[in-house]
């Protein structure tokens, strides 16, 4: 089945697209035909039997068992056919091949993290090999989220305290949108990720190398990469504007008022604590919604982020000096 993009469906990029799309287009064309029968039929009848002269007695035909039987049985047969068709494909989605490559997916407000079997992990970017069955074992750390990749025609809720599973085979290298489709609060529409499909060889190299360790670049530059890669940018700006949390462009070395009225100094320890134990000190006027990055960021990465935040603050001083 051809699954190229139409006005309806985006181009199909997984093994399921070729199974789902034929059902979709069958339903679409069957619906158009049924719609034309109902609306065309109604249009014809109201025109043909429109009032023209005076009031008349109309025929009293009010029952016809054959007709009732016909327009009950034919639709029943039609829906039973599409039921079994849809059921068949749905079961294929539910039966995971034994040799599928397993990746752990964690959803939380408001980003995705992906853990690979060798300990490698990424945020908001799922990298998978093409043409290989991938199994996602998913759970949430807070509220319900939902994993949806339109090009793959797959979706599954990501629930706290429970694992849900989907699997698929990506057909072509490329980058595809990942959406959260279960409402999860303020950052719901920012909870976006990418699925990057690469060739199997590229994938193996990528997994071996890890997600890039910041070698050969200054810590602040590595921090700038992490700022995007680890989804800090969903909630924190770097230009001083308010998003969900306080901006990274803060007065490093200065002070900040936290909930409860105390004042803290914005220093390395405060930032480290805010990353690993965000609920400890909440900036006054902000919601306590940040999840912990314990286990997601390594020490070196935390150092890099601190260096990045410092560099943003240095910029301010340079501007002032200029």
């Amino acid at each position: 089945m051809d699954t190229t993009a139409t006005i309806w469906m985006p181009a199909g990029q997984s093994n399921f697209a070729g199974e789902v799309d034929p059902i979709f287009y069958f339903l679409l064309y069957a619906s158009i035909i049924l719609f034309l029968i109902v609306v065309g039929g109604t249009g014809y009848l109201v025109w043909k039997y429109r009032h023209t002269g005076k009031e008349i007695k109309t025929p009293g035909v009010s029952e016809n068992l054959t007709l009732e039987f016909t327009w009950t049985i034919i639709p029943i047969i039609m829906v039973i056919v599409v039921f079994f068709w849809g059921f068949n494909v749905f079961m294929k989605m539910n039966i995971v091949p034994r040799d599928a490559y397993e990746i752990k997916v964690t959803g939380q407000k408001w980003f995705w993290s992906f853990d690979y079997p060798n300990g490698n992990s990424t945020v908001n970017e799922l990298v998978i090999p093409e043409d290989k069955a991938v199994k996602l074992l998913m759970s949430s750390r807070d509220v319900i989220h939902s994993f949806f990749v339109p090009e793959f025609r797959v979706k599954m809720d990501v629930v706290p305290n429970r694992y849900s599973v989907i699997w698929f085979k990506a057909l072509n290298p490329g980058t595809y949108n990942l959406f959260c489709t279960e409402f999860c609060g303020k950052g719901h529409s920012e909870m976006l990720g990418k699925v990057r499909v690469v060739t199997e060889r590229e994938f193996e190299e990528w997994v071996e190398a890890g997600a890039g360790g910041g070698e050969g670049i200054p810590p602040s530059e590595y921090g700038a990469q992490l700022y995007k890669a680890k989804a800090c940018n969903t909630c924190h700006s770097v230009d001083g504007s308010r998003v969900v949390g306080p901006s990274f462009k803060a007065d490093f070395g200065g002070s900040r008022i936290i909930e409860g009225g105390q004042t803290v100094v914005i220093d390395e320890n405060y930032i480290r604590e805010s990353i690993l134990n965000p609920q400890a000190k909440i900036a006054a006027g902000y919601d306590p919604v940040m999840p912990t990055y314990q286990g997601i960021l390594k020490d070196k990465q935390i150092d890099a982020l601190i260096a990045y935040i410092k560099s943003l603050s240095d910029n301010i001083e340079q501007e002032k000096a200029n």
């Binding site: 199974e19 829906v79 849809g86 059921f87 068949n88 339109p150």
Partner: peptide, 8 residues
């Protein structure tokens, strides 16, 4: 109502 298309 069709399971496979509802997933999408």
């Amino acid at each position: 109502g069709v399971l496979a298309t509802d997933v999408h």
